[in-house]
Simulated assay, not measured.
Amino acid sequence: MATSTWRQRLAASIDPARVRDRVENVNDGILAISGFSEGLSGGGEIANLWSPIVLMAAFAGALSVACVVLSAELANRDAEQLVAAEEQRRSALAPEEQIAELAAHYEGRGVSPATARQVAEELNASDSLGAQLDIDGFDERTTIGGAVSTAVRAALAFLLGASVPILISVATPGVWRDEYTVVAVAAALAVTSVVLARLGHTRIWQTLLRSVFIGLAALGSSYLVGAALL
């Protein structure tokens, strides 16, 4: 009973959408840096610099991911602030219209007109702005601190994925490095595929095979491009 309760609390505290985003960042780190590492394998003259180059690529990739995520989060915050200002202006000018808009929203979702009106009035009385932002698609207030935190978590997730090819580049002999990389990438993608399938309530084997196949195809393409250039 205690174990079941602990699992229920853990499941309730997890936001599946955020976890999916971070798992995708992990996969990006696995594939991007593994592909880069495989591409380098065509150049024997840089064998002694292999590990430092892969490590620098991982940090560069993590920084890029952090910048992209931070930019997206701040853009979302700007849009939210514009909508909030407009909703506050409309609430001051025509509060009854705001209640009617809320009621219409819940009616459109299948709530009876009387119940929708009651819900709209209660939400408007407790948190008018929050209710309006929610129906406009802003279900969570974005702060600068939150945006930075999300960007940092995305970068760390990328580095977690990138650690797979980094460890392979450090721990394996050069003659077997490509083979070990392929096996490690397949294993890592299998783990993340299971996580994604459980969160998305999809078939595990279908998700696993699709992710591993696409990942290895991307890895093979990177190797061919790198071999052609080097």
Results as ranks from 00 to 15, higher is better:
Gln8Phe: 03
Arg9Gln: 15
Arg9Cys: 03
Ala11Phe: 10
Ala11Ser: 14
Ala12Gln: 14
Ala12Gly: 05
Ala12Asn: 12
Ala12Cys: 08
Ser13Arg: 13
Ile14Asn: 05
Asp15Cys: 03
Asp15Trp: 01
Pro16Gln: 09
Pro16Ile: 02
Pro16Met: 10
Pro16Ser: 03
Ala17Leu: 05
Ala17Ser: 10
Arg18Thr: 02
Arg20Gly: 08
Arg20Asp: 04
Arg20Phe: 00
Arg20Gln: 09
Asp21Met: 08
Asp21Gln: 10
Arg22Tyr: 13
Arg22His: 14
Val23Cys: 03
Val23Asp: 02
Val23Ala: 06
Asn25Gly: 10
Asn25Thr: 04
Asn25Phe: 12
Val26Thr: 15
Val26Lys: 05
Val26His: 06
Asn27Ile: 07
Asn27Ala: 10
Asp28Pro: 05
Asp28Met: 07
Asp28Glu: 11
Asp28Phe: 02
Gly29Met: 06
Ile30Ser: 06
Ile30Tyr: 04
Ile30His: 08
Leu31Phe: 01
Ala32Gln: 05
Ala32Met: 04
Ala32Asn: 12
Ser34Tyr: 05
Gly35Leu: 07
Phe36Met: 13
Phe36Asp: 07
Phe36His: 10
Ser37Asn: 01
Ser37Gln: 11
Glu38Ala: 15
Gly39Asp: 06
Leu40Met: 15
Ser41Asp: 01
Ser41Tyr: 05
Gly42Glu: 04
Gly43Leu: 12
Gly44Lys: 13
Glu45Met: 12
Glu45Thr: 13
Glu45Ser: 15
Glu45Trp: 14
Ile46Asn: 04
Ser51Tyr: 14
Ser51Leu: 14
Pro52Cys: 06
Ile53Trp: 02
Ile53Met: 12
Leu55Glu: 03
Met56Tyr: 11
Met56Arg: 13
Ala57Cys: 06
Ala57Tyr: 02
Ala58Glu: 08
Ala58Trp: 04
Ala58Pro: 03
Ala58Val: 11
Phe59Trp: 09
Ala60Arg: 11
Ala60Phe: 07
Ala60Asn: 08
Gly61His: 05
Ala62Pro: 06
Leu63Ile: 15
Ser64Asp: 03
Val65Ala: 08
Val65Ile: 14
Ala66Pro: 02
Cys67Asp: 06
Val68Ala: 15
Val69Leu: 00
Leu70Thr: 01
Leu70Trp: 11
Ser71Asn: 09
Ser71Asp: 01
Ser71His: 01
Ala72Arg: 02
Leu74Pro: 00
Leu74Thr: 00
Ala75Val: 11
Asn76Ala: 07
Arg77Met: 04
Arg77Asn: 00
Asp78Gln: 11
Asp78Glu: 14
Asp78Lys: 03
Ala79Leu: 10
Glu80Ala: 06
Glu80Leu: 01
Gln81Thr: 02
Gln81His: 12
Leu82Pro: 00
Leu82Asp: 00
Leu82Ile: 01
Val83Lys: 02
Val83Asn: 00
Ala84Cys: 06
Ala84Met: 03
Ala85Ser: 13
Ala85Lys: 14
Glu86Trp: 06
Glu86Gln: 13
Glu86Ser: 13
Glu87Thr: 01
Glu87Ala: 14
Gln88Ser: 12
Gln88Ala: 10
Arg90Glu: 12
Leu93Pro: 01
Ala94Asp: 15
